[in-house]
Computed example of a mutant assay.
Amino acid sequence: MERLDKIIATALQISRKDAIALIKRGRIAVSKETIKDPKAKFDENGAVLFCDNEQIYYNKYVYIMMNKPKGVISASNGKGEKTVVDILPPDMKRKNLFPAGRLDKDTTGFMLITDDGELAHSILSPKNHIPKTYIAKLDKPFNDEIIKEFEKGIELKDAKCLGASLEPVDGDYQVGKVIIKQGMYHQIKRMFSHFSINVVELKRIKMGSLDLDENLKMGECRYLTKEEISSLCDK
Rank of each mutant, 00 (worst) to 15 (best):
M1T: 01
R3K: 15
R3Q: 14
R3L: 11
L4V: 05
T10Y: 04
L12E: 12
Q13W: 14
I14W: 15
D18Q: 14
D18P: 07
R27F: 06
V30C: 06
S31A: 10
T34G: 00
I35W: 13
K36A: 02
D37W: 13
P38N: 05
K39G: 03
K39S: 12
A40D: 04
E44C: 10
E44Y: 12
N45T: 02
N45W: 05
N45G: 03
C51S: 14
Y57K: 12
Y57E: 11
Y58D: 03
K60M: 08
Y61A: 02
M65Y: 07
M65H: 05
K68Q: 10
P69W: 06
K70H: 03
G71V: 08
V72C: 07
S76I: 01
V85L: 00
D86A: 00
I87G: 00
F98M: 00
L103H: 11
L103F: 09
L103K: 10
K105S: 07
T107C: 01
T107M: 03
F110A: 03
M111K: 09
M111S: 10
I113F: 09
I113E: 06
G117Q: 12
G117R: 14
E118D: 11
S122M: 04
L124D: 02
P126E: 07
K132M: 06
Y134D: 12
I135L: 15
L138F: 15
P141W: 03
F142M: 11
N143S: 12
E145V: 14
I146A: 05
I146Q: 08
I147V: 15
K148C: 05
K148D: 13
K148Y: 09
G153W: 09
L156E: 03
K157H: 09
D158C: 09
A159M: 10
G163N: 01
D170N: 15
G171H: 07
Q174Y: 07
G176T: 07
V178H: 13
K181T: 08
Q182P: 01
Q187G: 05
I188H: 03
R190D: 11
M191P: 12
F192R: 02
F192P: 04
F192K: 02
S193D: 14
F195S: 01
N198V: 00
E201C: 02
E201D: 11
L202P: 08
R204K: 13
I205L: 09
K206I: 06
K206T: 06
L212R: 04
D213F: 09
E214R: 09
K217M: 06
K217E: 03
C221V: 09
R222V: 04
Y223H: 08
T225Q: 10
K226Q: 14
E227P: 05
C233H: 05
D234Q: 15
K235G: 09
